[in-house]
Design a protein around this nucleic acid. Structure first.
Lengths: 354, 354
DNA sequence: CACAGGGATGCAAGCGCTTACATCGGGAGA
DNA sequence: TCTCCCGATGTAAGCGCTTGCATCCCTGTG
């Protein structure tokens, strides 16, 4: 951030620009360059059949006139919307917005627009049917946390809309995801190695029966690891935290209210873990001593408050997802799954059992 | 969030829609309704001179054909971009993204698009000059943290682009802001009442000399209150935290490294305060006991971790800002300043000095 | 040296809407 | 009953681009 000293800085600079504020059209440029509008259009879009000298002339004219193409006209004429949809439940979670920022970053760079939508159960279907905004004016859709089964995946793949899925892996659909089972295993193993015997799980939702999805995979990795270590996971030790801060708070309170409360808890998201901190404090206990907590994400606040967590490169996932979408739209790129690395970050919220 | 049970849920529903995927044009609708395209256009946009019966017929046709207007065509024809720009430094801070979500919420509802831009020193100017994206295809601009002096404000007001400023108050420009001086006073007073004598300040930037801006106002309120209480604010007690988590961390470390460290610190943002928590821990001290901390914002994580803070209704500010922009674009609404309420939320990060 | 081939450019028809202007019809006032 | 007026609708000209097709010209080839 630049230091603005009094009386200086960009705002106070002289308005030295000639600035015939962006009124030039492609015809003006054509005239200025002495070519046809068609040639200008081609020159501007890297069409192969434009002589280098001509391109130069056009570019010069563009500079001089400060020409900027009217994207509405371009889109109308070409039939390409240069817009991709981004659908997720809970737009306000850190995870989602971080993905969105990543996506936005590369899309904007390629002069694409982002159309954002929430995906509650109703609107998911809507996307591919009658929804007003997504119906026709979208080149592709980036889906987050689809949480659909194999059937859903099949239906998605059958659509002729290019799709990229973020966060989970579906049959025949390009995706960027992490190995959720492994992530959960990392967390569980960590807690087990610290010596914990009573370890609980706070999932995003409790309905973990859908074929394949993030919570299910994490739950599986977690369960398996516990089982392998000869530990039990009683039903009461599995709570639903709704992937939100208040949800995590509630879940933790429920856990601490148990006759035999756990000494360690794995949360499927950092935000739920944050909520849990409050519950621990309210109970007069100390995190990392009386009860260990492990999250998932590596939210920016996780570091400062010392939350042990499984880091996933969220922003980078968003970026990659957007790039894959662009490749798909360009006709390149085949259906592929792109795995991203997961790392356990040990901090002070987890320690040996009291 | 809906519970998806195996084999069910929206994804698995039968594709029961007739779905002649949104290919209908306004002409199709006109034909279907037995009117001209002009009438359809008018009916759809609430033009007064359309008979109710006609409107009904058009609507029916729209329904039947699942017609959705092509916004590119509409924008091209009308010359209205239906897009507003959103410019802020640091798009990734919670404050900014929260504002953005609020803005997005109402804009989307009104079928407007949001064009997001960063405002580093260079691009600020660019907005109103040669910048490619903002030059012509924008109806108005929402500015966050402009941090410009009166001169800058004058230049802004002189532009013919509708402008709404969020977070601070500028001459002759519509804005939504809080009383920053008062907020800082609340924080300072709270700390003083707790009995603190050595109180430090972590600002967003140290260049507090610009005519009028958020950090300056908060610094003033803070200083004045300390002074009124007969307390000193040594230069070493004023640190620059850059409005980021790491910045807050650094600032706190610097403060704690002082020969006579403060017993309480006011941070101009919660995120900086979060960073500080880590520094306190590293120093082997306890927040709320050895050192009290007060933030500003009421970030969602502030509650869970017990950070005392000055709450500002950020999301609501974004919403209101967007609404004001829409009013301006509609020709309604005059230049006005809309003040929002600030509240001190006392939590456990602040207590009596040790 | 005529001719085919293909690179470089121009022409002009849209893309799907909006809107100024023309038109039409029917009730109110003369 | 005949204007006049105005509400309701139609006509058609673009908005600023993209792109298929036609055209032109410069090489390389036989």
């Amino acid at each position: 951030m630049q230091a603005l000293t009094s009386g200086e800085g960009p705002w106070d600079a002289e308005p030295d620009a000639p600035a015939p504020v962006g009124r030039a059209t492609i015809d003006d440029v054509a005239r200025e360059a002495g070519v046809s509008t068609a040639t200008v259009s081609r020159a501007l879009r890297q069409h192969p059949y434009v002589a280098e000298s001509t391109r130069q002339r056009v570019m010069t004219a563009v500079e001089r006139l400060k020409y900027v193409a009217n994207s509405n006209a371009a889109r109308l004429a070409s039939g390409q919307s240069r817009t991709v949809g981004f659908i997720a439940p809970m737009l306000t979670s850190w995870y989602t917005s971080e993905l969105m920022v990543g996506v936005e970053e590369v899309l904007t760079h390629e002069r694409f627009d982002l159309l954002i939508g929430t995906a509650n159960s109703a609107s998911r279907e809507r996307i591919f049917r009658g929804d007003a905004r997504f119906q026709q004016h979208i080149d592709g859709v980036i889906l987050v946390d689809v949480f659909c089964g194999d059937d859903g995946a099949r239906r998605l793949a059958a659509l002729d809309t290019p799709i990229v899925v973020l966060g989970e892996q579906l049959q025949r659909i390009t995706s960027v995801s992490v190995d959720n089972e492994r992530g959960a295993r990392l967390a569980a193993k960590h807690l087990i190695q610290l010596g914990h015997k009573r370890i609980a799980l706070v999932a995003g939702h409790n309905d973990l029966d859908v074929a394949k999805n993030v919570p299910t995979e994490r739950a599986k990795g977690f369960r398996d690891t516990l089982q392998a270590a000869g530990l039990r996971l009683p039903a009461a030790y599995v709570q639903d935290g709704d992937f939100t801060i208040p949800g995590g708070h509630r879940a933790m309170r429920a856990l601490l209210g148990l006759p035999k409360p756990p000494t360690a808890v794995f949360f499927m998201s950092d935000e739920m873990a944050f909520g849990a901190l409050e519950a621990v404090r309210e109970a007069g206990l100390r995190v990392g001593h009386d009860v260990s907590i492990v999250g998932f994400d590596d939210h920016p606040v996780a570091g400062p408050i010392g939350l042990t967590t499984v880091r996933q490169p969220v922003r980078e996932m968003g970026r990659l997802g957007a790039r894959l979408m662009l490749d798909t739209l360009d006709g390149f790129g085949t259906v592929r799954h792109h795995p991203m690395e997961l790392t356990l970050i040990e901090r002070i919220s987890s320690g040996r059992p009291a």
